[in-house]
Design a protein around this nucleic acid. Structure first.
Lengths: 256, 256
DNA sequence: ACCATTGGTTCATATAATAAACCGATATGG
DNA sequence: CCATATCGGTTTATTATATGAACCAATGGT
């Protein structure tokens, strides 16, 4: 692996549940030599991608990424557009909504919104990585991804997050076909035990899938009526976002 | 220079006025060999930091930075906090406002807001790099930066953006002293010919300066009354943001 | 007082980065 | 319509750079 890739892969270790990481821990989790990690992190710090904080010199994501993010949003404003829709959709349906984004063969939460309607709700984590096979968002995205990505995902062993998680590649491929016919994906307790979610793909810059919009509710609350509303709304909104992003639904799946 | 630094420095070439850059152009502007740039950009693309778009394979900032940005904001929510204040302040004063952020010895616009009060207004660019010596924001930040940064900035030749730009290091050092006494920085036509701006520093995580809040108005509109309001408001708001960010004004300048 | 950690540093070694030349494709223009 | 220039991308011998085991100094817990 190239040196640059090694440096960038260190950034992947940071997450919402692990926002600050020390040098030794980075070395352990990356499998790279401590001296190597030190130099790579120094390079990243020099450019503001990470910064060291506190007396224990822990690393965290630095301010430099914000400049790039602002620049990205200026040309591809997916997050700012998603934010609005996610908020009003949560209000409309009364359940948690979120938009996730695909990047480098990974899907992660871009923004989300809660509804105040119920005392219980599905909670989200910032920038969480979502497994393709176990979430409705992941399945929605996978349905319109190129065969190479689908194969790559399905060829690795799939994590059985809950007893209900589908981990059989063939079964998933069948599901992808159904999703492309129906226009939405659905997951009942596949990711979290008590979560029922529906999702629809978002396209940008042509027929390239760039993410998904999803609504997630506690399993017990999803009766026939709510489910129908969720499905209709998520498809409708995803199409709206797609339109604004200058995207289009492909006539047939497998866009690339 | 390390390979990683070379790769990351390529990202600095992207800006609001140049959001997409081709391979040859990147090679030209960076001074690096085309083959080298190609490999570095491939590494960056692999991790979603850049992506290639269109038939001409131009590079632009990729979706991967958004995940990191979301993560950054989850721990240091400067932008989201700044957004609110910048918006309401613009409304209150009736002029353009913005918050900039310091990273790796550079200052760049993080967010801004316009007011609808007047037909003419100061306009901003996304993620623009602001010179320390020629903007009120830059001077405000520099006043509370460590001596190493001040020396580094003032030792290089300073760009005379307009006939009114102050480029004499000694004169600037005098100005920094005055700013620390008054608590705000001011620039009249130093950056853009017709812009009068005032700025106050923002601190986070202790007494470390992390950026500045500024109000910018057309020179002709700034009479004594407006100027007083701008100065009072910018200091007041900057302190509010500092408080929320868990920062504090240092008792004396030169925080590090 | 000790041992186990931590972040950081050193330097001989080995590996990965580099740059000139080259390729094929596309566009430009006379 | 052919000649030329420019583009993104690729190859390969050369060379510079990254690497990692061992080593510090400092901190903290037992």
């Amino acid at each position: 692996m190239g040196t640059t890739s090694k440096a960038l892969s260190l950034l992947r270790l940071f997450s919402s549940s692990q926002p600050e990481i020390g040098l030794t821990e980075l070395s352990r989790q990356s499998g790279m030599n401590k001296a190597t990690v030190y130099r790579l992190m120094s390079d990243l710090a020099e450019h503001g991608f990470v910064e060291q904080v506190g007396a224990d010199r822990m690393y965290r994501i630095g301010p430099g990424v914000m400049r790039l993010a602002v620049l990205r949003e200026a040309t591809v404003p997916l997050r700012s557009i998603a934010k609005e829709h996610v908020r009003s959709l949560a209000e409309e349906i009364g359940e948690t909504t979120h938009v996730s984004q695909v990047s480098s063969g990974e899907l992660s939460t871009l923004t989300y919104a809660y509804s105040a309607k119920h005392g219980t709700r599905v909670t989200m984590e910032d920038a969480e990585r979502l497994p393709f096979h176990a979430t409705s968002s992941g399945l929605a995205v996978l349905t319109y991804s190129n065969a190479a990505l689908v194969d790559a995902i399905l060829s690795k062993p799939l994590d059985k997050r809950t007893p209900h998680t589908i981990v059989d590649p063939l079964q998933i491929r069948g599901e992808l076909k159904r999703i492309s016919e129906r226009g939405y994906a659905e997951s009942v307790s596949g990711f979290e035990q008590d979560v029922h979610s529906v999702a629809a793909p978002i396209f940008a810059g042509g027929v390239t899938v760039c993410g998904a919009l999803a609504i997630a509710a506690p399993v017990g609350r999803v009766n026939g009526a709510l489910r129908s509303r969720m499905i209709a709304a998520v498809q409708d909104r995803a199409r709206m976002i797609t339109d604004i992003m200058g995207g289009a639904m492909p006539v047939s799946p497998d866009s690339a």
